[in-house]
Simulated assay, not measured.
Amino acid sequence: MSEHVSQTNRVLSYPKGEKPAIIVNEWQVWHGDETELDNLNPKQKVLVPFSWWLMHGQAQVKDSTSELAKRIQEKTIGVWFAADDDILKHLDVIEAGKSIWPLVGADFPVFRDGRSFSTAALLRERFHWTGEIRAIGDVLIDQLILGARSGFDSFALRADQNTDVALKQFDLFSVRTQNSWRDCRSQLSNQLTEAV
């Protein structure tokens, strides 16, 4: 596998309304240039950078003869957002993406950079994204609870993270102090609602 493509073998999947589970990862994260994408296995599912999609991918959707257009139709192309991508500037692109991207990712370039939590929350709350959102990059067990609350429903954990420990994270706390896109209301919100 080239340095321009990364893939972990397993991901933690935690769809809304379901229990977390470790599943086989079918998606590569592509970091490279346009020519290398053509050299990837056409059957392989690939997340391309959103910045690349803006420059190259949108035009390919309408060109039914291109190889990329075929992959888009086969639902083997998704996008990933860099931590500094301003998704609010691209409402129309993301709206169109709802019908063609089977998966989107949000990258954590380093574990202490939390901007991708905001990306997931914006996708869920403002864009009403109902598809899968995957945390990619430097994803640690410590980020899972906040990630699940923010809008992520799958996590490509860093290779050194223990998946057995990761699965147990969601059972650590019985009281919630913040609301969640998973329809979980905080204890405080419930008390205020009951008082009214």
Rank of each mutant, 00 (worst) to 15 (best):
V5P: 00
T8Q: 15
N9R: 12
N9P: 08
R10C: 06
R10F: 05
K16G: 07
K16A: 09
G17I: 02
E18N: 14
K19G: 00
V24S: 09
V29K: 03
H31K: 10
E36G: 14
N39W: 11
L40A: 03
L40W: 05
K43I: 06
V48L: 09
V48R: 01
S51M: 13
W53E: 03
L54D: 06
A59D: 15
D63A: 15
T65Q: 14
S66K: 15
A69K: 04
E74S: 00
W80K: 06
D84T: 01
D84C: 05
I87S: 02
I87Q: 07
L88M: 00
K89H: 15
D92S: 07
V93Y: 09
E95M: 09
K98T: 00
K98N: 00
S99I: 10
L103Q: 09
L103E: 07
V104F: 02
V104A: 06
G105Q: 11
F111V: 05
G114W: 13
F117L: 08
F117Y: 09
F127P: 10
A135L: 00
A135N: 02
I136M: 04
G137M: 00
V139R: 08
I141S: 11
A148R: 02
A148Y: 08
G151Y: 01
F152P: 06
A156Q: 06
A156W: 07
A159V: 08
A159N: 13
A159C: 04
D160L: 06
N162A: 12
D164M: 04
V165M: 10
D171V: 00
V175M: 08
Q178Y: 15
S186V: 09
S189Q: 10
L192W: 12
T193Y: 13
T193P: 12
E194W: 09
A195P: 08
